[in-house]
């Protein structure tokens, strides 16, 4: 299992008990999300994954600064020391 660092912006940190930086294990982005859900509860998963099991459109996930929408989405492979950033898109105005 790859050991990766997850970065959570303050506006999403209510889903991670206020934690902004978390070390977890996972070989793909979806495995990391599953790990985070085990750690923080289903609330985290519900925030980022829709009912069909896809990443919610308003959530962007970056692996080492690259948006996974330009990679292999939730199945983007990870390696040790990768940094995963969750970034919500804010609409409206």
């Amino acid at each position: 299992m790859a050991e990766v660092k997850v970065l959570i912006p303050a506006v999403m940190s209510s889903s991670t008990n206020g934690e902004r930086e978390v070390d977890v294990n996972g070989n793909t982005v979806i495995e990391v999300i599953d790990e985070l859900s085990k750690k923080y509860g289903e609330d985290f998963k519900n925030k980022v994954i829709d009912n069909s099991g896809n990443l919610k459109p308003i959530i962007n996930v970056y692996v080492n600064d690259e948006n996974i929408k330009f990679l292999e989405d939730l199945h983007t492979k990870l390696k040790d020391k990768d940094e995963i950033l969750f970034l919500p898109a804010v609409s409206g105005g």
Binding site: I58, N60, K69, F70, A89, S91, G92
Partner: peptide, 20 residues
Amino acid sequence: ECFQPALKDDEMPKCGTEGV
């Protein structure tokens, strides 16, 4: 579109229903 690509209006929350 670098940091918020591939969004669609009908998938986004709206101020009219969510409030602001």
